[in-house]
Structures are given as structure tokens and as C-alpha cells.
């Protein structure tokens, strides 16, 4: 647990500094602002799929929180 959090922290710090050269200017966000370019375009589909796979497989979460909420697993 502690080891995992430390690793995550280092990755995050590295990302902030390493990513500062990437990206776009504010006036170049036309494509990124499109609905189909959002990370979750269909929130209901994401929720129902997470629920189906949580019930039928031994893994859950990743995109968001993965725990609980159903007696199916």
C-alpha cells in the first residue's frame, strides 16, 4: 500500500514536470472541446458496462472507483 502510493506520487511528480512541454494553446482546443473527444462520452454506457463486467469477472474499476454496490460478486 505505502509502496504503491509512493510509486504513484513519483509518477505524478514526473508527469507534471515532464508534461509541461506538451499540450496546446488555449485557442487550439477546438477539437478537444468536442463531445466525442471527452474521456467518457456516454456515462450510462460506462456505468452499465462496469456493472456487467463487475458481476461476471474478478476485476473492477480502473476508470473510476471499483468497489461494491452489488451482491453479484
Amino acid at each position: 500500500m505505502r509502496h504503491g502510493m509512493l510509486t504513484a506520487g513519483l509518477i505524478l511528480l514526473g508527469t507534471i514536470s515532464g508534461c509541461s512541454s506538451m499540450g496546446v494553446e488555449p485557442w487550439e482546443r477546438d477539437i478537444l472541446a468536442k463531445e466525442e473527444m471527452q474521456l467518457t462520452t456516454d456515462p450510462i454506457e460506462a456505468t452499465t458496462d462496469d456493472h456487467i463486467y463487475f458481476s461476471k469477472e474478478a476485476s473492477s474499476g480502473g476508470r473510476g472507483f471499483g468497489g461494491g454496490g452489488c451482491g453479484c460478486n
Binding site: T15, M22, G23, V24
Partner: peptide, 9 residues
């Protein structure tokens, strides 16, 4: 914990 990064346009 998450990082979201715009790589390009």
C-alpha cells in the same frame, strides 16, 4: 490517482 494530459490538438 490520475493524470490527464493533452498531448496535441
Amino acid at each position: 490517482f490520475g493524470v490527464t494530459q493533452v498531448i496535441s490538438r
